[in-house]
Design a protein around this nucleic acid. Sequence first.
DNA 1: AATTGTGAATTGATTCACAGCT
DNA 2: AGCTGTGAATCAATTCACAATT
Lengths: 205, 205
Amino acid sequence: MPAKIDIPRKSIYRLSIYQRCLQRLRENRVDTVSSAALAKAAGVKSTQLRKDLAYFGQLGTRGLGYNVDALSSTIGDVLGQNKLQPVILVGVGNLGSALLRYGGFRKEGFEVAAAFDLQPRKLPQVTVPILPITEMEAFIRRNNVKMAILTVPASNAQSVVNEMVRDGIQAILNFSPTVLDVPEHVVVNSVDLAVELENLSYFIR
Amino acid sequence: MPAKIDIPRKSIYRLSIYQRCLQRLRENRVDTVSSAALAKAAGVKSTQLRKDLAYFGQLGTRGLGYNVDALSSTIGDVLGQNKLQPVILVGVGNLGSALLRYGGFRKEGFEVAAAFDLQPRKLPQVTVPILPITEMEAFIRRNNVKMAILTVPASNAQSVVNEMVRDGIQAILNFSPTVLDVPEHVVVNSVDLAVELENLSYFIR
DNA sequence: AATTGTGAATTGATTCACAGCT
DNA sequence: AGCTGTGAATCAATTCACAATT
């Protein structure tokens, strides 16, 4: 595995997009695709796609293009999609419970193994166990969980993060509208709905 | 208003973050803040904060720092927070209904004026009217709506987008896991949950 | 003395242009 | 002939370093 550190994060994001397009090609029994065609589908330039892929070796055939199955499988390896990764969700409010019901994660290689809340309640249509947050530490350690989805109010976010990082969480998808302070080795991706809307509103005249 | 086109979008994102930090300072009755302190709270370098703010004029006082109220008000103007912006939401599935219940938009200056779905149903706790999608065009035109939140399945997303753009929508917050094709003058911000998780999973070892 | 605002330097990402395979 | 892979060139964003200001 090459040093992960010097591959741009944006390239990794795009890999996920390419993967989705490849999936669609597979469904349509297409077995070869050119960088131009795939780039078009993904909404990027073909040179960028080739640069992105080149980080992971020579994946195409000159004069021909990329083999859809092979490329998809390589990207799957890179993104760690090929083994089901357990994830916990913390904070079962509106957004948290919607994500639990959403369920689309599994087919992308993620299993929400458990959810935690201060006051756990059973939710209709949700099979994921919802546990009191006091059990989070034991669960993370016992199941060796490395990823968490954070949907608690901003006021609790930092203290919950401190705890989960202590317990072994290495990657956090944060929906709380706040800046999280984490150690070097922990990765945070934040999705801030208000910020996204505000950003759009700047661009309308 | 300076030409919007050459201010980096990332700067605009950060403006929203700064604004949140300023809000907190206001609550604590702090009236002046240095770029170093505000940058720390926002998780960026102080030079970056100063560069970001400099796009909008000389907002600080050398030797002293920034006036919290004045800066917050300027950023509010830039982001268009100072007038309530009507937004529609299209696709009242799991995620869509969660966002309707979430309600945190209003205090950020957005009002979800209506929601649309193929099969509208009344939702408990939700006061926003949920209308059949056939009424979307008339609603957008009558109320001069410019922003939309898109939470429909990927398979419908492009056709819904085509319609709303025709009706006058200029900015779209897209949660559908697909690449949208829109005209030049329309801005799209995409939030793709699976992509965010995959991205994280790449970074854990 | 402290802190902003900014040109210059640096670092990073994208795109170009074409050599190298099949 | 067609299409990938990649070094070089360009473009964009960040950080540095310090002059300007209170």
